[in-house]
């Protein structure tokens, strides 16, 4: 196992920010670190990185305690920034120098990343002159500057337009494919589903869901059904024990107790001469799992 987090806990006064957080990332790839606002994600990340002292717990990397002063770690914080008055290229060289990079090495990395992120033209601008999206690109470049083995991306796509979001995704894919260990925190569940196989979900500092996303979904089974037809079918649904969740232009969403019930309903609809336009029985989405685990008691702090 490469990155192992065991029993991390942190209290601020009487407030428990993180309680007994454990997970491991065994292979390169993207690991989802999820949670509601104020669930303790940033606190956990800071503890993992050693920026914040832990009340208890350990973080090991390849069997040794993780020391970010020695290991190459890239971090794109949720609350990120640049020096507003200094020019971009000088900031990048500074970031490279504190990462222990030589000037030549830094120049090569900056040239590649700036070209890849299409921000070459902003090299000599001050950070305050850049749009938020372009600042975010510079920050991603800074995070990837030292070619880190471990990359922590906290809400990497927030505030980006679709074009730049795609650009970021392609870079994340590139890093993943080159064998990096990536921890990604995001509230965009589609993005998480697109990249991540394993996840941990925090709520009020506690782990409420953990494991492989496909396994979790498989365990839950196909319980969501969307049906669209050319005639009303409410009675049939009721008779078959379906629970109506929502009516939308795309059809009616039901919660089903078993796949057999869904099959019986489809059979009855067809036998009644109803023309079925859409009949989609599927596993719960990550969004639905998230809301189910955390939806009843969301901390909006």
């Amino acid at each position: 196992m490469s990155l192992v987090v065991e029993h991390l806990s942190k209290k601020f006064g009487d407030h428990v920010a993180v309680e007994d957080l454990s997970f491991s990332i065994e292979n390169p790839g993207v690991f989802a670190f999820l949670g509601t606002n104020g669930a303790g994600k940033s606190t956990s990340i800071r503890m993992i990185l050693g920026m914040l002292s832990r009340d208890s717990g350990t973080v090991t990397w390849k069997g040794q305690p993780l020391d970010i002063m020695k290991e190459k770690v890239g971090y794109l914080a949720e609350e990120r920034g640049l020096y507003p008055k200094y020019n971009i290229i000088e900031q990048m060289y500074y970031f490279a120098s504190i990462k222990g990079m030589k000037k030549k090495e830094a120049t090569s990395a900056i040239d590649y990343l700036f070209s890849r992120l299409k921000i070459d033209e902003y090299r000599k601008k001050r950070a305050e002159e850049l749009s938020k999206g372009n600042q975010q690109k510079v920050q991603l470049a800074a995070a990837l500057l030292c070619n880190p083995e471990i990359i922590i991306l906290d809400e990497p796509l927030s505030g980006l337009d679709p074009v730049n979001a795609d650009l970021f995704k392609s870079i994340i894919r590139e890093e993943r494919d080159s064998g990096k260990y990536i921890i990604m925190s995001s509230h965009q569940m589609e993005t998480i589903e697109e990249f991540c196989e394993d996840l941990v979900l925090l709520h009020h500092g506690k782990v409420v869901m953990r494991g492989n996303l496909n396994d979790i979904k498989r365990e839950r089974g196909r319980e969501n059904l969307t049906v669209k037809a050319d005639k009303p079918f409410g009675e049939i649904a009721q008779r078959c024990g379906m629970t109506l969740v929502e009516e939308t232009p795309n059809g009616s969403d039901f919660k089903v107790r078993s796949e057999e019930e869904a099959g019986r309903m489809l059979k009855e609809m067809l036998e009644s001469g109803i023309n079925v336009i859409k009949f989609d029985l599927r596993e719960p989405s990550l969004h639905e799992l998230f809301v189910e685990k955390c939806g009843g008691d969301v901390n909006e702090d």
């Binding site: 990185l49 970010i68 971090y75 914080a77 990120r80 920034g81 640049l82 970031f95 800074a142 995070a143």
Partner: peptide
């Protein structure tokens, strides 16, 4: 920016 600096 401090968050970034503290990683190094």
């Amino acid at each position: 920016i401090i968050e970034y600096l503290l990683t190094s």
